[in-house]
Design a protein around this nucleic acid. Structure first.
Length: 412
RNA sequence: GCGGGUGUAGCUCAGUUGGUUAGAGCGCCAGUUUGUGGUACUGGAAGUCGCCGGUUCGAUCCCGGUCACUCGCCCCA
């Protein structure tokens, strides 16, 4: 066995898994395209500031999960740990605010230094959609509806549940945060160690603690919905009404939160029970403060990201692979003629695999394994007669046809 | 970063209560068929039992470390 192995948390992707992941990306691009989204490919690495500033120095992602290094020119750069910050940077860099709202879709690898588990890697892949500009709730509905449509097309309608919540606007959120801190501080002695720490760093996170003792306290904790101001309540009501109108089923989950401060209003996660602790398959929300934090103007945004590996593990769609045609020339002259015939067939849209090594038996075996429908046998006998032998591997029949008739003879 | 489990052929896994040549199925290669596949039969190749060290007359097996995977926590897609 080879000692060469990929670095921890990275993998080689091929075969069925590659097909599945491509199917997820293809479906995503088609669905998002149908909502008017356009492609944006941002760099895989950015200046570290791009991620550090919006995510916050104290956040886990920045403080211990980023792949940050100094390049040969002395610049501090970071492999992207997520898409949103880079997309917003691109939005600012390219003056996209001239044409709002911007609908931008991206996909590709992202990097986080974490302890790997199934469905959780250091280099993993995301699909990402951002809508930048809109301040009203109808756009949140569009984004969630688009995610739901994608998941349905991937055959996951019955495998995921949409958890939906609101974080309110800045004012409501701050009020709620204060209420939570007051409540949990009064019961600090009963909180888990993790949650005592969260009381300082990220009190909202206590709400989704998995500690049994915490859960008892959380059950009686104040609710976000009780601390929403009028505007925030109206915003959330509109999101819910819109989703109902669009036919998107959801659960209002008061415990669903976001850690970072620039998140406002809508937060949502599509969760499955089929992947253990890695149950979140697609998640997003509104980030009205992010662009400004990055140095842009005050522009709102709403977006989501999905984990391609996790989605590929759950999708039921079977990618269609074109059945190849095997070209089996025997002898030098036949090999040369086969080049021409193969090019003709490819020009007609066929997938042609030229198999020139080994005896005919071996080559037919390979053709069968490759799920080929036809094998085109071209030896000296055929060449002299100006013909090729076309073997139908499904039926086991074969016929000689002229070179010109080949294309017509291999129609399935 | 913290705690638990696992690591034997390309793949899925048996097995050795520490002992001489480590097994199966699938896959691969070859033959029965020197120009005809998928089935069948016959034969074959392939493993420093993850890596390093310790204990022992002797370690794939016991112990320690390490690497990787895996389950949970943290965090998150």
């Amino acid at each position: 066995m080879s000692k060469l192995q990929p670095a921890r948390g990275t993998r080689d992707i091929y075969g069925d898994e590659a097909l599945g992941m491509n199917a997820v990306v293809d479906t995503f691009r088609r669905v998002a395209g149908s909502y008017g989204f356009e492609d944006l490919a941002t760099p895989i690495f950015e200046f570290t500031e791009v991620f550090k500033r919006p995510l916050g120095e104290a956040s886990d992602v920045v403080s211990k999960e980023m792949y940050t290094f100094e390049d040969r020119g002395g610049e501090e750069v970071t492999l992207r740990p997520e898409f949103t910050a880079g997309v917003c940077r691109a939005f600012i860099s390219n003056g996209m605010q001239q044409n709002l709202p911007c609908r931008l879709m991206s996909h590709g690898p992202v990097f986080r230094y974490e302890r790997p588990q199934k469905g959780r890697y250091r280099q993993f892949h995301q699909i990402n959609a951002e809508m930048i500009g809109p301040e009203t709730a109808e756009f949140d509905v569009d984004m969630v509806a688009m995610a739901w449509r994608l998941l349905c097309e991937l055959g996951m309608r019955d495998k995921v549940v949409l958890h939906l919540n609101t974080l309110g606007d800045v004012e409501s959120r701050a009020a709620y945060r204060d209420a939570l801190v007051a409540y949990f501080s009064a019961h600090k002695d009963k909180l888990s160690e993790d949650s005592v720490r969260r009381l300082d760093t990220n009190p909202l996170r206590i709400l989704d603690s998995k500690d049994e003792g915490d859960k008892v306290l959380v059950a009686d904790a104040p609710l976000m919905s009780e601390h929403l101001n009028k505007e925030s309540r109206a915003f959330f009501d509109l999101v819910k009404a819109g989703l109902e109108a669009a036919g998107v089923p959801f659960e209002h989950d008061e415990r669903l939160v976001r850690g970072l401060d620039y998140y406002t209003h809508t937060a949502f996660e599509f969760i499955t029970t089929e992947l253990g602790a890695q149950g979140t398959v697609l998640a997003g929300g509104r980030y009205d403060g992010l662009i400004e934090k990055l140095g842009g103007s005050k522009v709102a945004g709403v977006g989501w990201a999905g984990g391609i590996e996790r989605l590929a593990m759950l999708t039921t769609i079977v990618p269609e692979v074109a059945r190849p045609l095997f070209m089996l020339p025997m002898g030098e002259a036949a090999t040369l003629k086969a080049f021409a015939l193969a090019e003709d067939l490819r020009a007609e849209g066929y997938t042609v695999i030229a198999d020139r090594s080994g005896n005919l038996k071996k080559r037919l075996t390979r053709a069968s394994k490759a799920n080929a429908r036809f094998a085109v046998i071209l030896g000296d006998n055929e060449l002299e007669a100006g013909m090729v032998m076309v073997k139908d591997l499904d039926r086991g029949t074969q016929d000689q046809v002229t070179f010109d008739a080949l294309t017509a003879a291999v129609v399935e």
